[in-house]
Amino acid sequence: MRTFAYARADSVERAVDAQHAQQAGAFVAGGTLLLDLVKLDVMRPQQVTDISALPMKEVAFVDDDRLRIGALVTNTDLAHHPDVRQHYPLLSQAILNGASTQIRNMASTGGNLMQRTRCPYFRDVAAACNKREPGSGCDAMQGINRMHAVLGGSEHCIAVHPSDMCVALAAIGATVTLQGPDGTRDVDFGNFHRLPGETPHQEQDITDDELIVALTLAPPLAPQGAAYVKLRDRASYEFALAAAGAMISLDGDMIGEARLALGGVATKPWRCAEAEEILRGQPAETATFERAAEAALADAQPLEHNAFKVPLARQAIVRALRDATRDAKEGHA
């Protein structure tokens, strides 16, 4: 494990300044991502700026009915927050489906947005990986790609975005607030994560000296049902092979509003806008769900070992829509 300098920030401004002065700096909050990857020599920060003591731990509704979440709110606290449980149950479910109790206790909201792929070739410095070392190639393409993306990949990278929380956020809609040396700016969550394209190492719309300070959720759908269906190899403490997060509002037996996002199958948290279109105003029944699932995976490009993810993701979608509908009928929220 390489050495690094350490700064403990006492204000967001100072944290950003400390980072701005560095060639290769990194923020640390929970540490679950950074220290894992530093030990693997995948991340090589020369300075680590500790932001864990900064006052970014509030969860509160702001004026227009949108929930604002401080970047340092832990995954555990967010998942169990009464407002999240009541108004954004999908977010709560998704978080609790991810990682382990201990990691959720440590991991921050901002850190989760910065989560990096679990691609084994990314995590092995002896392998070729365009994300880790631009231009070195992609060993996953012809290698073991059972866990890799069927959506949003490029010839340069097919690494899956591993977050569960971000799947819920993609469905809900959110704004990411960043603070840099020149002040703050907001980025729409849907644009925050980038497709790999030719630059898989540029994973998010954030500069090295910007800090995520908060996340503001779109107003909740109401009344709604929600379901997060995560399909994986073991029953817990496991990344998704395919996950679907769905929110449904009903108008009688018809779907009013629908939101759908996928995890485990795409290079970024994957909002299924076309599928949502198909769902709107249609009967809340299996045939509709299956049409939406078809549409959501229409562009899938499977590789040697991950073709199963296409039907699996469709199943996750159909089940999530079914369960969200049931949830809505049971009068949730």
Binding site: A5, A7, R14, P55
Partner: peptide
């Protein structure tokens, strides 16, 4: 709030 501090590697 903890105080600001900086330490070399």
């Amino acid at each position: 709030m903890k105080d600001y501090s900086e330490h070399s590697p």
